[in-house]
Design a protein around this nucleic acid. Structure first.
Lengths: 198, 198
DNA sequence: TTGGATGCCAACCAACTAGTTGGTAGCACT
DNA sequence: AGTGCTACCAACTAGTTGGTTGGCATCCAA
């Protein structure tokens, strides 16, 4: 491995290890030593590459969200399908959901952090796509709809214990995702789609 | 103050201080010293009254949920109203929402903790009330509906930053809550209610 | 009055933490 | 061969952490 490759590999190993650690324990609970150990490199490298623990966390979140963006296409004419796809992505990427929750808990009330412009723009694009799919103009109302659809997709992965408390520990997560998507479909008005079976 | 009253007051002061601290920083981030200082008692009292940091956290959550239960009546014939009331309660008790999020992040995948039976029973009662209100039998489907309704009410308080990113930092939270309730109303079928004003 | 709980606290401690430092090994260019 | 540079690491540090201990004050029962 050339030194450049080695550097990049070290950095990526740290990001991967950090994603696990942060997803599991959050920023405060994460241990820098554990991250370094899991990555198989010296912990000083964290400071060399990322500056400090929090910046490493930010880098992890950015990477995870970039991944989501690259894999989930914009909402189109069928918002229910969008909810389904999102929910499925969250289900298969529980780390991301947990990272977002830790992040949501960390910055409270503050103004948007620098570096959030990317996210704002991405959401604006989603809002435009959603509005176009509905044959409407992008507005606060379509943005609110986008928020609720995104939230609905998140719910089952965000609150698995609540689901267990309400449905029993042997409930079927796949049915829950189906239910959530159907719920969105019902709210969006009478269109053609599979009814709630069962 | 009699010693008993004093003891009870000490205990309550600790609970109140702990609620703030835990809501703000979570279990890992909370500092036992800060809790004791805010409560105006020695930190050893935490161990005398609650055993350790985690048990104190559990006690805080139990108290907060008892409070919610005592103030929010069961869902009835109008589930949309239930969502509204819940959302309003969460808005005025952001500490509870954050506590629930920290808790959700802490215990992952595990079986239900001892002491959760109370919660299971409460949810079962809500499910029965919801089903009765809809003129249905309690089932997994009505439980899923309860989950989604609860989740919808939680969303705006759980993800305020996402709302800011999607709607701008000057958006109106009251409108968001209205939107969420209306959304639930639309999904629950054509009934009489205020339309989404735009 | 006295003896024993009980609530409380100041001071303490061992373990752990994020972050730093001084130095080494390997590469690139001259 | 010599020089500078970069990625890397072992060892260290200064500060913090959850939890403990020994003793003091107050109350109540006998």
């Amino acid at each position: 491995m050339s030194p450049r490759d080695s550097t990049a590999a070290t950095r990526q190993a740290l990001l991967d290890a950090a994603r696990e650690e942060f997803a599991a324990h959050g920023v405060a609970g994460a241990r820098v030593d554990r991250i370094a150990e899991r990555a198989g490199v010296n912990k000083e490298r964290i400071y060399g590459h990322f500056g400090n623990k929090e910046k490493l966390f930010d880098a992890v979140v950015v990477e995870a969200l970039d991944d989501l963006t690259s894999q989930i296409s914009l909402p189109g004419a069928d918002p229910v399908d969008y909810v389904s796809r999102l929910a499925e992505y969250y289900r298969t990427h529980p780390d991301l959901v947990r990272l977002l929750m830790w992040e949501a808990l960390n910055y409270r009330g503050q103004d948007l952090l620098p570096g959030q412009e990317t996210r704002v723009q991405r959401c604006a694009r989603k809002n435009e796509a959603l509005a176009e799919g509905l044959g409407r103009e992008p507005s606060q109302d379509t943005a609110r709809l986008l928020f609720v659809l995104t939230g609905l997709a998140l719910l089952p992965s965000m609150l698995p214990q609540l689901a267990r408390i309400m449905l029993g520990s042997d409930h079927d997560p796949a049915r829950m995702r189906q239910f959530v998507a159907d719920f969105a479909g019902m709210a969006l008005g009478p269109r053609e789609q599979a009814g709630v079976e069962g």
